[in-house]
Amino acid sequence: MGWETWIIATLSRTLAYGTPLLIATLGEIFAERAGVLNLGVEGMMIMGAYSGFVIAYTTGHPWLGILVAGVVGAVFSIIHAFVSVTLKANQVVSGLALTMLGLGLAGVLGRGWEGLPLFTPIHKMTVPVLSSIPVLGPILFKGQNLVVYLTMLLVPVLWYVLFRTRIGISIRAVGESPATADSLGVNVTRIRYLCVIFGGFLAGVAGGYLSVAYRPSWTQGMTGGMGWIVIALTIFAFWNPIYGLLGSYLFAALYHLSFRLQAWVSPELLKAMPYLFAILVLIFVAQGTLKKKMGAPAALSVPYTRGEE
């Protein structure tokens, strides 16, 4: 087995497994850029996974499933927006509560839906002509689904919105210094609400991808902690969609390799590898000055009340 097949297998798995991580990370980047830390990603994802599966299963339309998954994630995230923006409560507690609520609620609602295969998943596709390019063809254009490509397209779009448009400036201003933004006429509450809801939508879509495309079936707890990886990846990405793509794909590559390399390295050690990598990066990023330089929103997880500060 030559190096080519190794590269092809690793990178094509990277795209498949990295996509849900990337989708949810992009959403969390927006929420945190607006100054709202949302630890409820796992809860929103599992709600998306559940509702996406149910809709795709009953209607036979997987894309409708993905859409509904996003909407459910968005609606679910309003709880966190209300508690943390309107009531100005502790964002960590509220986010954790959202995760617990989502896991529990999806578990109860999902009774009886487990063990059903989805006959109409989002299928893998092979792009004609392009897939016959050596090495690159099989990686990019064979056996991936449309969501993978759409997610890739979304990255530059969101980067542009965040760093090159008026809305992006408002979002970042609200996350840096809500008082200043407010004095300049930016509606802090509205921006924070919209960003949290957008984050919820993408987390829901990521969950829907898991149950409709990645492994088309529903099982309780099927997100298996991915939501927490997303929180780490958001920091790893320095709150930038482009780095979000790099981080998600790098993590996914390590994840795939942790199974591929088992013939040579102890599985226990490999199992820890992607997480060890995430912790190292977090320690690195947590250094105060670096954190500032790398773009951590200064008002992250700080509720804003007009006239105080």
């Binding site: 492994r215 991915m226 795939h256």
Partner: peptide, 15 residues
């Protein structure tokens, strides 16, 4: 129980 891990392990064996 971890569907994603089971999936990637299977893909590794296929490769």
């Amino acid at each position: 129980f971890n569907p994603a891990a089971a999936k990637e392990a299977t893909e590794a064996l296929i490769a």
